[in-house]
Simulated assay, not measured.
Amino acid sequence: MKESQHNTTDFGYKTVDREAKASMVADVFHSVAAKYDIMNDLMSFGIHRLWKRQAIACAGVRKGHRVLDLAGGTGDLTAKFSQLVGDTGQVILGDINDSMLKVGRDKLRDLGLVSNIEYVQMNAEALPFPDNSVDVITIAFGLRNVTDKDAALRSMYRILKPGGRLLVLEFSKTDNEALSKLYDFYSFNILPNMGKLVANDSESYRYLAESIRMHPDQETLKGMMENAGFEQTTYQNMTGGIVALHRGFKY
């Protein structure tokens, strides 16, 4: 079922007007921005750092590259890419949410990373860059929040240079029944309470848990990337399939 054929879409388990979803997602991330990093560590027991490290290792980023860290939020991937591309390269930290961008900019400046990073507020469905202008795109834990994922993937394909690659790091589906039950209990019972205690916001974290369940599974996302034009599309499951890293190339 293609999202673009309908006037409604999912917002977690709710069905909402397509035009309203972006602002509803924005409200979630305005709410959680200040506590985003500490909640990531608490929610994943720090494992998110290993997932991101694997994405960085598979990105093939080199000196002189122009990299888009899309939905880059507080800049975990941007920080490493900034070091990898060097003075002759550029990293664009792009996010639809200005609160997240501000947190990311402050964090990266505190790390002394300023010379080769640009901050741009943008919508993944209509990326504000010329065709064939970016070497590598990463989107980590952001695609599931995009209203029209097919449009976003086509937009990413358009701006990649021939030979460029896209990496999508996202929560996915585990086929381990015991792990799935444990994960569901954690997501819908413990996670919202943790959000209430730490970020004073249980509803945003309930949405995040629901949005994970509504995201396409590994094979479906692989097919969506291929429909957008990507070739040699593969994925790697991590932590039993709770997270998957998809990779595709433009030729």
Rank of each mutant, 00 (worst) to 15 (best):
K2E: 15
S4D: 05
S4F: 03
Q5L: 10
N7R: 06
T9I: 00
D10P: 00
D10N: 07
D10K: 01
D10T: 02
D17W: 15
R18T: 07
R18S: 12
V25L: 08
D27S: 11
H30F: 08
V32I: 15
Y36H: 08
D37S: 06
D37W: 09
M39N: 11
D41Q: 13
S44T: 13
F45I: 11
G46H: 14
H48I: 04
R49H: 11
W51A: 04
W51T: 03
K52F: 03
R53A: 15
I56K: 02
A57D: 09
A59Q: 03
A59H: 03
G64I: 06
H65S: 11
R66K: 07
A71E: 05
D76V: 06
L77Q: 02
A79E: 09
A79L: 04
F81W: 07
F81D: 07
F81H: 05
F81K: 04
Q83K: 12
Q83G: 11
V85F: 08
V85M: 10
G86H: 13
Q90I: 05
N97H: 13
K102P: 09
R105C: 07
R105M: 12
D106R: 11
D110T: 13
L111K: 15
L111V: 12
V114P: 01
E118S: 08
V120I: 14
N123L: 02
D131Q: 07
V134Q: 14
V134D: 10
D135G: 04
V136P: 08
I137L: 14
T138A: 05
F141S: 01
F141H: 02
A151E: 02
A151Q: 07
L153V: 06
R154Y: 02
R154Q: 12
R154H: 10
M156I: 09
K161Q: 02
P162C: 07
G163P: 12
L167K: 08
L169R: 06
L169Q: 06
K173R: 11
E177L: 14
E177Q: 11
A178H: 01
L179H: 09
S180H: 02
K181R: 02
K181L: 04
K181F: 01
P192S: 00
P192I: 00
N193I: 04
V198Q: 09
A199T: 09
N200E: 10
D201W: 05
D201Y: 05
E203K: 14
S204H: 10
Y205D: 00
Y207E: 00
Y207N: 01
E210C: 01
M214C: 07
L221K: 03
M224F: 03
E226V: 06
N227A: 15
A228S: 10
G229I: 08
F230T: 10
F230E: 06
Y235P: 00
I242D: 15
V243L: 14
V243N: 12
L245W: 08
G248M: 12
G248W: 10
G248A: 12
G248S: 12
K250Q: 08
